[in-house]
Amino acid sequence: MTKRFSSPRLVESAKLTTFAQTAFAGAIALNVWVNPSLAGDPFRNREPHQIGDQTEAAFKAIFQQGNYPVADHYLEQALSKEPNEPLVYAMKASLAYGNKDWAKLDTYSQKTLETGQKLIPSDPLRGNLYIAIGHFLEGAVVITREGTVNGVPQALSRLRQVYEYLDKAEAISANDPELNLIKGYMDLLLAVNLPFASPDQAIRRLEQNASPGYLVDRGIALAYRDLKKYPQALEYVNRAIKTTSDNPEIYYLKAQILKQLGQKEKSQETIEEAIANFDKALTKKSQLPGDLVKQIERERRSAVSLKNAG
Rank of each mutant, 00 (worst) to 15 (best):
S286C: 07
K168V: 10
S267H: 08
S109G: 15
T148G: 04
T55W: 04
R145C: 01
L188K: 00
K15V: 07
P199S: 01
G116F: 06
V216H: 01
V142I: 12
A58G: 07
A255I: 09
P121F: 07
L113T: 05
P212M: 07
V34P: 06
A276D: 11
Y224I: 05
H135D: 13
K264D: 12
G127P: 13
L38S: 03
L222W: 12
R298K: 12
E272D: 08
V152H: 05
Q268E: 15
I62P: 00
A23P: 00
Y236N: 00
E235T: 13
G213W: 09
V304K: 14
P86E: 08
Y130H: 15
L129F: 09
G147N: 07
N67S: 13
A169T: 12
S211Q: 11
I220Q: 02
L282A: 06
R44F: 09
K15W: 06
P42I: 00
V142C: 04
Y230V: 00
Y230W: 01
T243G: 07
N308W: 12
A223N: 01
E273D: 15
G134C: 09
V192P: 00
A39R: 13
P83E: 02
A155P: 01
K183R: 06
A240R: 09
A78G: 10
Q54F: 04
T22P: 04
N67E: 13
F196I: 06
I271F: 03
R160C: 06
R4T: 11
R298G: 10
E297I: 02
R239M: 07
W33V: 01
S13Y: 07
Q260M: 11
L253P: 00
D167S: 13
L227S: 08
Y224S: 03
S94A: 08
S286K: 08
K228E: 04
Q208F: 13
G26A: 06
N209Y: 11
T107V: 15
Y163M: 11
A171T: 12
E114I: 14
Y252D: 00
Q256L: 07
I62M: 03
L194A: 05
L95Q: 03
E249C: 04
A39K: 11
V32Y: 04
S6P: 13
G262E: 14
D200N: 05
L95W: 00
A78W: 02
I220R: 02
E164C: 13
R9A: 14
G310H: 11
S245M: 14
K60G: 01
Y130A: 12
P212H: 02
I220M: 02
L87D: 00
A61V: 01
K284T: 02
L206Y: 02
G52Q: 01
I51C: 11
S305W: 12
A27D: 09
